[in-house]
Simulated assay, not measured.
Amino acid sequence: MTVNELEELLYTTTESEKYHLAHPDVLSIRYQKIAKTTYNSEEIYLFRCEDLLQNHNICINKDSRYTSIPLHLHTIIEFNYVYRGAITHVINGEEIHLNTGDVLILDTNTPHEVRYIGEDDINMDIVMRKCFFTTHFLSNLSSQGIVAQFISHILSDQTNSKHYLIFHTENDLLLRTYIQQLMCEYYDLQYRRSEIIDAYMVIIFTHLATLFQKNTLNRYSLNKMNLTIKILQYLEDNFKTATLLTTAETFGFSTAYLSTYLKKKTGKTFTELIMAQKMSQACFQLTNTDLPIYEIANGIGYENLGFFYKKFKRYYGMNPQEYRNRTMNRI
């Protein structure tokens, strides 16, 4: 399927949309078959998507236009992408306004509703199993270096406290292209391949993390956040030679202040951050190169191969060769 064919499909009036045009302000008859659950002493709809997912990790659906979606919750993760127009969600009584290109990820069992969706509004609803989200987004992100691990920690905290994530992407072109390719693959019923769909989701998640790092850090204390990122980036670039003293001198701090600052902001000591970066670099080399393990160990500062094996196994619960074999089996 081409992008032109995809957009023709998305903009075509569906049978559900024809019903809503003919019956304004009336819920679809499908709601008669949807179970309800009690939330805050109120009965709301319970959307179970297990039947839609079947043996797949994700399912993609366009929300019907010319109607609203009443208060409900999902038993799975919901990934909303505004393909065109503007969409308003209501979560815990708060209106969340999204424009073209914006993303809203909702955790399982998060009650929400969607305001009226007009003719010019296209909202794509991608539902997925929570294990797929955590494995391919947060876990994948946390293995890409200490800066990415720090961003992953922020995202995890935000998801746990609010039960949703918002990405105002300013209609990022790359993200739009990735999502278009994902949908082209998904809607091509003759040639659809689950492994390619899963791969696109990994790319989308990783790109969202990059956008979060670049564009949404102002939701936190921007100056302090930028300082933390700068220090972590310095450690990523200089992990083989950086010491607490040289790092403190680089940023104009005392060693005591820097040590306390890093522990407070990242939850890790200076030594733990250096170790995390060494292990992340080792994982990258094991997964993406054919270098002998002793060369990888030397490259990250371990001249004693046995000591490297011991550290790696303590960190990941398996030795480097076992890690390489496992990641190769996933490809």
Rank of each mutant, 00 (worst) to 15 (best):
T2R: 11
T2F: 06
V3E: 13
N4A: 14
E5G: 14
E7T: 07
E7V: 11
L9F: 12
L9D: 03
T12W: 05
T13A: 08
K18Y: 02
K18S: 09
L21C: 07
A22S: 14
Y31K: 01
A35C: 02
T37W: 01
T38C: 10
Y39W: 14
Y39F: 15
Y39G: 09
E42H: 11
E43L: 09
E43K: 03
Y45M: 05
L46R: 07
C49S: 10
C49L: 12
D51R: 13
I58P: 08
I58N: 06
R65T: 04
Y66F: 15
T67W: 07
T67D: 08
I69M: 12
I69C: 09
L73N: 12
H74I: 11
I77Y: 04
F79L: 13
N80I: 10
R84A: 14
D102M: 08
D102H: 12
D102S: 05
L104M: 04
H112T: 08
R115I: 02
R115D: 04
E119K: 14
M124W: 05
M124H: 06
D125W: 08
D125M: 10
I126F: 06
R129D: 08
C131N: 15
L138W: 09
S139F: 10
N140P: 02
H153I: 01
Q158F: 09
N160K: 12
S161I: 13
K162F: 15
L175K: 11
R176N: 15
R176M: 12
Q181I: 07
Q181H: 15
L189H: 13
L189P: 02
Q190M: 09
Q190V: 10
E195K: 11
Y200N: 06
M201G: 07
I203G: 04
H207L: 09
F212M: 10
K214S: 14
N226L: 15
Q233I: 00
A242N: 00
L245V: 11
T246H: 02
E249H: 13
T250V: 08
F251G: 02
F253D: 10
K263H: 07
T266P: 01
T269G: 01
T269F: 00
F270T: 00
E272P: 00
I274A: 00
I274N: 00
A282Q: 00
Q285K: 10
A297K: 03
A297M: 06
A297V: 09
N298K: 09
N298V: 07
G299A: 11
G299W: 06
G299V: 06
G306P: 02
K313Q: 15
Q321T: 10
Y323K: 06
R326F: 08
R326C: 03
T327V: 14
N329C: 08
